[in-house]
Amino acid sequence: MAQRWRAVGVLAAALFAVNVAARLVIRFAFPDDDTASGRVSLAMFLVIGLVLAVTSFRWGADRPLGHWAGDLAVGVVVALALTVFVGPLLVGENPFGGGAGLFFAQIWLYLAATLAGVLVGYLILTALGRDHRSRQLKRYAEMKASRPRKIVRR
Score class of each variant (00 low, 15 high):
2 A>L: 12
2 A>S: 09
3 Q>M: 07
4 R>S: 13
4 R>N: 09
4 R>Y: 15
4 R>L: 11
6 R>W: 10
7 A>N: 15
7 A>H: 11
10 V>G: 05
12 A>P: 00
13 A>P: 11
14 A>M: 06
14 A>C: 01
16 F>M: 03
16 F>D: 02
16 F>L: 05
17 A>P: 03
17 A>C: 11
19 N>V: 15
19 N>R: 10
19 N>G: 11
20 V>A: 12
20 V>K: 05
21 A>Y: 04
22 A>N: 04
26 I>F: 04
27 R>W: 11
27 R>G: 02
28 F>Q: 06
29 A>Q: 04
30 F>W: 08
30 F>H: 09
31 P>D: 08
33 D>Y: 07
35 T>C: 00
37 S>M: 12
41 S>R: 13
41 S>K: 08
43 A>R: 01
46 L>I: 10
49 G>Q: 04
49 G>T: 02
51 V>W: 02
52 L>P: 05
52 L>D: 06
53 A>I: 03
53 A>W: 00
53 A>V: 04
53 A>S: 14
54 V>W: 15
54 V>G: 10
55 T>M: 07
57 F>S: 09
57 F>K: 01
58 R>C: 12
58 R>G: 07
60 G>K: 01
60 G>M: 03
65 L>P: 07
66 G>P: 06
67 H>V: 11
69 A>K: 03
70 G>E: 03
70 G>M: 09
74 V>H: 01
76 V>R: 04
78 V>K: 07
79 A>I: 10
80 L>E: 13
80 L>M: 14
81 A>Y: 06
83 T>Q: 13
83 T>W: 07
86 V>H: 03
88 P>G: 05
88 P>R: 09
88 P>Y: 03
89 L>G: 03
90 L>I: 13
90 L>N: 07
92 G>E: 01
92 G>W: 03
93 E>I: 00
94 N>V: 07
95 P>L: 02
96 F>A: 14
96 F>L: 12
97 G>N: 00
99 G>S: 06
102 L>M: 14
103 F>T: 01
104 F>V: 12
105 A>G: 02
106 Q>S: 14
108 W>H: 15
109 L>R: 13
110 Y>V: 10
112 A>M: 09
112 A>R: 08
114 T>A: 15
114 T>I: 08
114 T>Q: 05
115 L>S: 15
116 A>V: 15
116 A>D: 07
117 G>N: 08
117 G>K: 01
117 G>Q: 09
118 V>N: 10
119 L>G: 13
121 G>S: 10
121 G>M: 04
123 L>I: 14
124 I>L: 15
125 L>N: 07
126 T>D: 15
126 T>H: 15
127 A>F: 08
129 G>Q: 03
130 R>W: 14
132 H>G: 01
132 H>P: 02
134 S>F: 00
135 R>C: 02
136 Q>K: 10
137 L>A: 08
139 R>I: 03
140 Y>E: 06
141 A>D: 03
141 A>N: 06
142 E>F: 00
142 E>V: 07
143 M>A: 15
143 M>S: 14
147 R>I: 05
147 R>C: 06
147 R>S: 10
148 P>A: 13
148 P>Q: 11
151 I>T: 14
151 I>Y: 07
